[in-house]
Design a protein around this nucleic acid. Structure first.
Length: 269
DNA sequence: GTGTCATGCGTAT
DNA sequence: TACGCCTGACACG
């Protein structure tokens, strides 16, 4: 689930449900016992999202860093919550009874300012943040010797894009993943940045990834099955929605990448 | 019911 | 480059 849109959406929803509230915390799984003992009774004063990272500010304790990895998931319950799954690392209850479960995350840790700085230092600009500087993305593309397909998954170049958005971004801009990052023109770089902003924003609002434009679909976005909501991601062998050519996929840096060979011509022809 | 795979990434090799 | 994390969705039967 979690690309940047999911992370920012969690931040927004959790701010609304838990922001400013004193919380009770516990660790059903028992692997975050020390942390929840410190957090218990503190106040969640704010939440920051940066790329795929979440920073929960607890007064007066400090910052809880959460990275969901591939499986991580939050669940919120306004009524009586069910028993937590065995892997639930953190449970949090606000004064009004709203309960939050966090399971499967790859990072759940209390961090100090130095650790936070070292995390943020590794991240490129995040298209969902108002303070993002696209020039840093453009410069990162020029510095990299890999293809644009790999650069778009590099969180140090652009923070928050994952495998789905990467595939869809390149399709929508007609870019082959093997185009060398440093050969991306400034115009194309600008279009990739603007497109990533639009797609991630839409995903944050909708709570799901829908990249197929109105002209290429017959139903409203809310009615689309997951497989109908994208152009190329996980559609290897299926016809391109615009030209009918079979979508291709191959492994790139350990991750599958998808492209329409007609719309995304290889740089070497 | 079982098996496979994955919208991620740090660490070991 | 491979593995581990340790969850859920989905295909298959």
């Amino acid at each position: 689930m979690p690309e940047g849109h999911t992370i920012h959406r969690y931040a927004r929803l959790h701010r609304a449900s838990f922001g400013g509230q004193q919380v009770q915390t516990w660790s059903p799984q028992g692997r975050f016992t020390e942390g929840v003992e410190r957090l218990n009774g503190s106040t969640l004063s704010g939440i920051d999202a940066y790329g795929k990272h979440l920073f929960y500010r607890f007064e007066p304790v400090g910052t809880l860093h959460v990275h969901l990895g591939l499986y991580g998931r939050f669940r919120t319950f306004t009524n009586d919550p069910p028993a937590p799954t065995p892997g639930t690392r953190l449970a949090l209850r606000a004064q009004d009874g709203t309960t939050l479960y966090l399971a499967g995350a790859s990072a759940v840790e209390l961090i100090d300012d130095a650790m936070e700085r070292s995390i943020l230092q590794r991240l490129g600009p995040d298209p969902l943040r108002a303070d993002a500087d696209p020039e840093q993305f453009f410069a990162a593309l020029r510095r990299r010797s890999v293809g644009i397909g790999q650069a778009l998954l590099d969180q140090g170049a652009i923070a928050g894009v994952g495998n789905v958005y990467r595939a869809e971004l390149m399709f929508l801009e007609g870019v082959h993943p093997d185009l060398r990052s440093r050969d991306v023109t400034s115009d194309l770089a600008r279009r990739l940045w603007q497109r990533s902003t639009r797609l991630l924003r839409a995903g944050e609002r909708a709570g799901r990834i829908v990249t197929v434009e109105a002209a290429d679909r017959k139903k409203p976005p809310s009615r689309l099955a997951r497989s109908e909501a994208v152009y190329v991601y996980k559609r290897a062998g299926l016809p391109c929605r615009r030209c009918g050519t079979a979508v291709q996929s191959w492994e790139l840096g350990g991750r599958l990448v998808f492209a329409c060979p007609q719309h995304q011509l290889h740089p070497d022809g």
